[in-house]
């Protein structure tokens, strides 16, 4: 069964203008997005800046007001904040992009990690300390560091503190918003490996939001490509990377740098071809406003945004 089902999600932001600051229009940050994530899987949400991928994640966890559509967690509707029970909110946690600004610099590691515990569980001081130390050990940090402050840690270590906080309540779903983009290559590897390990250990489901296709390819089972608030293509990793159907996906995939310098010329030429195809067929793939059409299935798992006629 799908652990998370998102149905026709819309998140609009008002544009205010004029002397009285009235709402004149809306920015459709997320404009009719539907998907489902199976338990224990990693679902990748990919897009360039402004595509609405982060807003989607924030909407699901309740950090943005949902304009329309529904979000179901384990079959229960959690679209409306009031309907969300405490049990559900503790089951969904988020890891943020920037390990430097998402941790309160004036709080000790102990208090940062214990914060969700204090909100949801009644633990004695001793129990709380023990749990925090266990969590620190789980994320590969020394249990003695509970009295340190965030600035005493490196970027990768901070991101692991963020992860420790996110998994403190043993959630079922973690929304990871660009969890490694602020980190160095070797530290990235550390955090990604670790995310995979705890996924196996705790049976976690990830909604993995990223702009880095290489990392998404490494981490995710299913992938969706977003552009201007809409889905352009959705499919398995294999389908997206080896048989992309939408011109936007093709262009995105072709732009990934190849680590093998011998493929250089081939890659340039391929990119050139894709770009030409993109320029030529742009009008076929996007409507008059430059937005993607609605998704049409081309196989059981592979959905592509194509115009009505085919």
């Amino acid at each position: 069964m799908a652990i998370l089902e998102v149905e026709d999600l819309k998140i609009y932001f008002p544009i205010k203008a004029g002397i009285f600051n009235r709402t004149v229009d809306h920015i459709k940050a997320v404009d009719g997005v539907s998907f489902a994530i199976e338990e224990g899987k990693t679902y990748g949400l990919v897009g360039e800046s402004g595509s609405g991928k982060t807003t989607t994640g924030r909407g699901i966890i309740g950090l943005e007001h949902i304009t329309a559509g529904s979000v179901k967690f384990n079959g229960k509707d959690i679209t409306n904040k009031k309907k969300k029970t405490k049990a559900i909110s503790r089951d969904i946690q988020m890891i943020f992009q920037d390990p430097y600004s998402s941790l309160n610099p004036r709080k000790r590691v102990r208090d940062i990690i214990a914060e969700p515990l204090r909100n949801y569980e009644n633990l004695t001081k001793q129990e709380e300390k023990k749990r925090v130390q266990e969590l620190l050990e789980l994320v590969g940090l020394s249990p003695e560091s509970i009295l340190k402050y965030p600035h005493e840690f490196s970027g990768g270590q901070r991101q692991r503190i963020g992860i420790a906080r996110a998994i403190a309540l043993k959630p079922k779903l973690i929304i990871a918003d660009e969890p490694v983009s602020a980190l160095d290559v070797s530290v990235q590897a550390q955090v990604l490996n670790f995310m995979q390990d705890i996924q196996k250990e705790l049976g976690l489901t990830y909604l993995f939001i990223s702009h880095d296709l290489g990392i998404v390819k490494h981490m995710c089972d299913d992938i969706a490509i977003m552009y201007k608030g809409r889905y352009v293509e959705q499919g398995t990793k294999e389908e997206i990377f080896n048989h992309p159907q939408h011109i936007y996906t093709k262009r995105l995939v072709s732009a990934i740098p190849d680590i093998d310098p011998s493929n250089r010329e081939k890659l340039f030429q391929f990119r050139q071809e894709v770009q030409e195809e993109y320029d030529e067929s742009y009008n076929e793939y996007f409507d008059s406003e430059g937005l993607a059409y609605s998704l049409k299935p081309i196989s059981e798992t592979h959905l592509v945004a194509l115009p009505e006629k085919g």
Partner: peptide, 28 residues
């Protein structure tokens, strides 16, 4: 450099980037 890297750091760095068919990333 990419096909015949020698220094441990270079090799570690190259192995920590996700690549085709790689299950586990190398962590320095």
């Amino acid at each position: 450099l990419f096909n015949n890297p020698k220094h441990p750091y270079t090799r570690s760095l190259l192995n920590s980037v996700p690549a085709e068919g790689q299950d586990k990333l190398h962590v320095i």
